[in-house]
Design a protein around this nucleic acid. Structure first.
Length: 453
RNA sequence: GCGGGCGUCGCCAAGUGGUUAAGGCAGCGGCUUGUGGCGCCGCUAUUCGGGGGUUCGAAUCCCCUCGCUCGCCCCA
């Protein structure tokens, strides 16, 4: 295979896919706007130190998954493996926090050097929010509600919210030593990975999927027992707020997130429609990160949502329920009008006509083949357009265009309703098309939609 | 980094050592030189991811290699 290919784990999005992405993105934008979030766009490439310091040297992401290289000035650069560190860096660099708390959102590609599998790529895309300078437990519930409501609006189900608290750094310190000493007494029962983590990152042993390790952990001391009273009551307040919002959740005491900056609230939203990589959205509070990156101590919370995984879930929902909300979002837009034209004079007029219609805001697809009318109509039908406009020799002579509805269930039924419209006064035709001109009684759903924006 | 599965036309796919590599979808042309869902006819892979080997003979067997995919790990 000498044909050039994209790099492993780097995928192309073809038109059928991009229209879905656009639908999701535009819906997400609406929600962000309602929640008072404003967009930031940061570079994909950052100095390596940002992630090393922000995410934590001991994490897998930093330890073995980063795309890092020296640039021509011999600086160590890294393609961002996640968005939070960059957003915080940008906020600090430009003094945003001096203006008070910030509710920000971002979207874009992230890079991690991992073996690809279902729901996991080397270049993947996240859409996320970061609320900087927000303290209260209500904010935690509010930012979770944003994720929850956005996902609900996409028409997907089978989602579950899991939540936990990681407490303060002090809480974790206390717990860490209790856990380590408990595990050390049972070291030989742990799997190899977990033994390794005893020294590097013991909390992560908690969400090991190794059966024997899980079994063992049934009786291990839990973080909750080491929490200070404040941490506990804060957690209770978050849960209570979720109750007030009627957002269902399950407390999962083993939920420990892989990035070092999380503390207090940590949560994930998972789907039963995905394979092993079931997390669609993950996030939590990171009160220490801003300070760690050189700012004043600033509490913060955020989440990120995996676009590829979300699209998988959305497509599954669309398949399961072809007439539901998800299915509508997934559907590719059809042109409003398909222009059937044949003969030199006619094609010349068609070119001018379709431009005028487009300038009036209609989506027009012009058949450029010059082939037989039957072929052109067949393509018109497949394009999904509600109407065909026809210009052939006859019409060209008379300076008219013929309008035919394509949506009727029986092809010939539309023929009787074909009408000629003058090319010299397109206003009426445009108006008729924009009003949907009442397509025949067929099963297809759309008239001509009004263009927006 | 470690395991399993798989690579035949744009997509789905039959073929498992013997002459011309099924079929379906999509595409193109025609039946129908002016009208779409159906039908019929024709066209579209000198070649089976790539390289080497075994054999009179290989898509089919062996070796190497590349790629895809699922899982572990980890996360979105």
């Amino acid at each position: 295979m000498t044909q050039l290919q994209s790099l492993r784990g780097m995928v192309d999005l073809l038109p059928e896919q991009t229209c879905r992405w656009q639908a999701v993105e535009s819906l997400a934008r609406q929600h962000f706007q309602r929640w008072g979030c404003r967009e930031v766009r940061t570079p994909m490439l950052e100095v390596t130190e940002l992630f090393a310091r922000g995410i934590g040297e001991a994490t897998d992401v930093v330890g073995k998954e980063m795309y890092t290289f020296q640039d021509r000035g011999d600086r160590s650069c890294t393609l961002r493996p996640e968005g939070t560190a960059s957003v915080v860096r940008a906020a600090l660099q430009h003094g945003l926090l001096a203006q008070g708390s910030q509710r920000l959102w971002y979207s874009g590609p992230m890079f991690r050097y991992e073996r690809p599998q279902a729901g996991r790529q080397r270049q993947f895309h996240q859409i996320g929010v970061e609320w900087l300078g927000v303290t209260s437990a209500f904010s935690d519930a509010e930012v979770i509600a944003l994720a929850w409501d956005l996902l609900a609006d996409l028409g997907v189900d089978g989602l579950a919210l899991e939540i936990n608290t990681l407490g303060t750094p002090d809480d974790r310190q206390v717990y860490r030593s209790r856990l380590v000493s408990w595990l050390e007494q049972r070291q030989e029962l742990l799997d190899a990975d977990s033994q390794q983590r005893l020294s590097t990152n013991p909390l992560r042993i908690l969400d090991s999927k190794h059966p024997q390790t899980r079994e063992l952990l049934q009786d291990a001391p839990m973080l909750e027992q080491s929490l200070a009273a404040d941490s506990l009551s804060r957690h209770q307040a978050v849960l209570k707020a979720l109750d007030d919002l009627s957002i269902p959740y399950a407390v999962n005491p083993r939920l420990v997130r892989g990035l070092d900056y999380y503390g207090h609230t940590a949560f994930e939203i998972t789907s039963d429609q995905l394979g092993a990589q079931a997390t669609v959205c993950g996030g939590g509070r990171y009160d220490g990160l801003v300070q760690q990156l050189g700012g004043d101590p600033t509490p913060a919370i955020g989440w990120a949502l995996g676009m590829e995984r979300l699209l998988l879930v959305l497509e599954a929902a669309a398949t399961a329920n072809p007439s539901g909300r998800a299915a509508r979002l997934v559907k590719e837009a059809s042109p409003d009008v398909y222009l059937v034209n044949r003969g030199e004079q006619a094609q010349r007029q068609a070119l001018v006509l379709c431009r005028q219609l487009r300038l009036a805001g209609l989506a027009v697809q012009r058949d450029e083949s010059g082939s037989a009318f039957a072929k052109q109509f067949k393509r018109a039908d497949r394009s999904g357009a509600a109407f065909a406009l026809v210009i052939g020799e006859e019409e060209a002579e008379r300076s008219v265009v013929r309008l035919k509805a394509l949506t009727s269930a029986v092809p010939d039924a539309g023929d009787a309703q074909q009408q000629d419209w003058s090319l010299n006064d397109l206003g009426l035709l445009v108006e008729a098309l924009q009003n949907g001109a009442k397509p025949g009684a067929g099963g297809k759903d759309a008239g001509v939609s009004r263009r927006r924006g």
